[in-house]
Computed example of a mutant assay.
Amino acid sequence: MTQETSTKAAVVFDIDGVVRDVSNSYRRAIADTVEYFTKAAYRPTPLDIDQLKSEGVWNNDWEASQELIYRYFSVQGQSREELQLDYNAVVAFFQSRYRGPDPNNLTGYICDEPLLLQSTYLDQLTQAGIAWGFFSGATRVSANYVLEKRLGLQSPVLIAMEDAPGKPDPSGLFATVSQIENSIEQKSAIVYVGDTVADMYTVEKARSLDSARTWIGVGVLPPHVQETATRSEAYSETLLRAGAAMVLSNVQQLTPIQIQKLISRVCA
């Protein structure tokens, strides 16, 4: 990679589905929560959850859980006003599954998430002069658990759920880039790597608000959609239609050379 290109690029990563596999953690907690609040009448499938998230506005898994509950009862003829779901109760139940019953001692599904990225990959980006950071809808506790405890990163640049509005609002992406640029020169090309339609919409919105930089969305297929070629292809098409410049099966395929080629292609 040329120094000219590397000093201008930064990569921002989503976490869930990109850095860690959440198909048996966050998504399992969604299914558990919906099943509990529908009194075991409905447990959403992975495809049900994907279809909801393809709408581009359900990045928050607590809100996604609540929406699936509402939609189930709506089909049964009950209005949202009649249900009067307690959102805090939905969140509490979800967290009891995802984090575990003791919020100060993580013992839930979060403990069993396979990593999709190794710290050596981030070292390669650094050596190539590419800055990086994280913008995620996960809570700070959850995000730091995987970044610091699992990957061993030391105080990485991170904007989490508590720090910015939910995606596709690009405020958190802007804040991440701002933190990255606090210690280095301004980057003219920003690559955001995510696994959902909301992630790609976030890039589109960032581009519309800041034309001084080149904003590039890169999609990653979460592991649960890679079980069949049909689902992989359908999910890839969904991300491409939402604005992804390319779709990868694993984030580590986005090498420094690939980043250079991608920026050159987009800027051509």
Score class of each variant (00 low, 15 high):
residue 260 Q to W: 03
residue 220 V to G: 02
residue 163 D to T: 03
residue 245 A to N: 10
residue 232 S to Q: 10
residue 65 S to Y: 06
residue 167 K to M: 13
residue 170 P to H: 06
residue 105 N to A: 14
residue 84 Q to T: 10
residue 207 R to E: 15
residue 176 T to P: 06
residue 12 V to L: 15
residue 254 L to H: 04
residue 37 F to L: 07
residue 169 D to S: 14
residue 143 A to C: 05
residue 71 R to T: 02
residue 96 S to Y: 04
residue 268 A to M: 03
residue 160 A to H: 01
residue 120 T to Y: 03
residue 68 L to E: 00
residue 255 T to Y: 13
residue 90 V to I: 15
residue 93 F to V: 07
residue 157 V to Q: 01
residue 154 Q to A: 13
residue 12 V to Q: 07
residue 152 G to A: 09
residue 151 L to Q: 07
residue 156 P to R: 04
residue 34 V to F: 14
residue 81 E to R: 14
residue 162 E to P: 04
residue 156 P to L: 05
residue 261 K to N: 05
residue 261 K to Y: 04
residue 102 D to G: 13
residue 62 W to P: 00
residue 183 S to F: 11
residue 229 A to E: 09
residue 3 Q to A: 15
residue 224 H to T: 04
residue 177 V to H: 02
residue 254 L to Q: 04
residue 13 F to R: 01
residue 109 Y to A: 13
residue 89 A to M: 06
residue 57 V to S: 10
residue 48 D to N: 10
residue 233 E to V: 08
residue 252 Q to F: 08
residue 122 L to Y: 10
residue 19 V to F: 03
residue 41 A to N: 11
residue 263 I to P: 00
residue 10 A to G: 10
residue 76 Q to Y: 04
residue 89 A to V: 07
residue 265 R to M: 11
residue 205 K to Q: 14
residue 249 S to F: 00
residue 3 Q to P: 01
residue 88 N to A: 15
residue 186 Q to P: 02
residue 193 V to S: 01
residue 91 V to G: 00
residue 15 I to F: 11
residue 214 T to R: 09
residue 147 L to K: 09
residue 121 Y to I: 13
residue 26 Y to L: 14
residue 39 K to C: 06
residue 232 S to D: 02
residue 27 R to D: 11
residue 198 A to L: 10
residue 248 L to S: 07
residue 186 Q to V: 06
residue 251 V to F: 02
residue 217 G to T: 09
residue 171 S to R: 12
residue 131 A to C: 05
residue 120 T to W: 01
residue 249 S to P: 00
residue 30 I to V: 15
residue 118 Q to F: 12
residue 194 G to M: 02
residue 91 V to S: 03
residue 262 L to I: 04
residue 1 M to R: 13
residue 33 T to W: 01
residue 33 T to D: 07
residue 46 P to I: 02
residue 228 T to Y: 08
residue 233 E to W: 05
residue 136 S to P: 08
residue 33 T to C: 12
residue 55 E to Q: 14
residue 168 P to V: 03
residue 103 P to A: 09
residue 68 L to I: 05
residue 76 Q to P: 00
residue 240 L to N: 05
residue 198 A to E: 03
residue 74 S to N: 14
residue 138 A to C: 14
residue 71 R to Q: 11
residue 244 A to T: 12
residue 147 L to I: 11
residue 1 M to T: 13
residue 243 G to Y: 12
residue 85 L to F: 13
residue 235 Y to W: 10
residue 84 Q to C: 11
residue 106 L to N: 09
residue 254 L to A: 08
residue 172 G to Y: 12
residue 154 Q to W: 01
